[in-house]
Design a protein around this nucleic acid. Sequence first.
DNA 1: GTCAGTGTACTATGTAGGTATAACACTAGT
DNA 2: ACTAGTGTTATACCTACATAGTACACTGAC
Lengths: 142, 142
Amino acid sequence: MMWTPIGSDSTVPIYEQIIGQVVGVVASGGLKPGELLPSVREMAGLLLVNPNTVARAYGELERSGIVESRRGTGMLITPDAPQKSAEMRVAILKDRLRPLLRDALGYGLTASEINRLIELELAATIVSKNHPKSKPANPETN
Amino acid sequence: MMWTPIGSDSTVPIYEQIIGQVVGVVASGGLKPGELLPSVREMAGLLLVNPNTVARAYGELERSGIVESRRGTGMLITPDAPQKSAEMRVAILKDRLRPLLRDALGYGLTASEINRLIELELAATIVSKNHPKSKPANPETN
DNA sequence: GTCAGTGTACTATGTAGGTATAACACTAGT
DNA sequence: ACTAGTGTTATACCTACATAGTACACTGAC
């Protein structure tokens, strides 16, 4: 329930999506310092992804100081992981947001139009999260 | 001035970025029906990109009915290109927005936090567009 | 007719991301 | 000691994307 399978509607590399999920869970208190991340193979099963891809994500999380590798035991959440994760979480979003907003402006849309579009889509995303059965007014995007 | 070179800070394929630029220019009236798109080779020079990549983008634009191929002449903007482009423009943005917003919610952020973050980043993007020389408060994102 | 400039097509090469599979080094529990 | 479960590393293979270079078919202007 804590981890959501990797979808295919994102151009973001899978290993980066995994990093994002871990950072998100840690930042929001779902995992606390001293606890262990799901093992590489277990996480691969949960996310329906190859273990190598998970290993790569874990490796980068270690280089970021979010997690510490314990051979034979698992990946340990570091003491300052919550703080670093909270920072990283907004950094990741900003990095993904920047090209999108630049393009949106390049399309000739005004800032208020862009904001309105985003708020609508955000609302739609929230309701579709609460009612996974029926998709909200989005008949055709093609 | 109408076309901006392809940057490298986007995970979106170059040919899709080109499609986006054309759609944006047409939707905002920068090019009208009956006019010609820059030639494959010329556009490649403007965007600092390989002609093959431009050709692929043009091909998909033709399949979308935005443009019509005239062998030996160029790519002609179709009569209903403005309408189709306007629709496509928001469809593209929505498709890129959806996974981002879903992830943002998954990170444990509230809708208002997300909206605030986006408005800040949007404002920053606008000023950096008007003052390309000095970058706004964004010393390090890594 | 010629020629420059169109779109189009093909082959080859390189890189990044992902999968599949296997092996290795280590730790904890029994 | 044994064993199961850790992280780690390595190889091979595949696909999408992008580049480089070349060639072909067509159009318009001269």
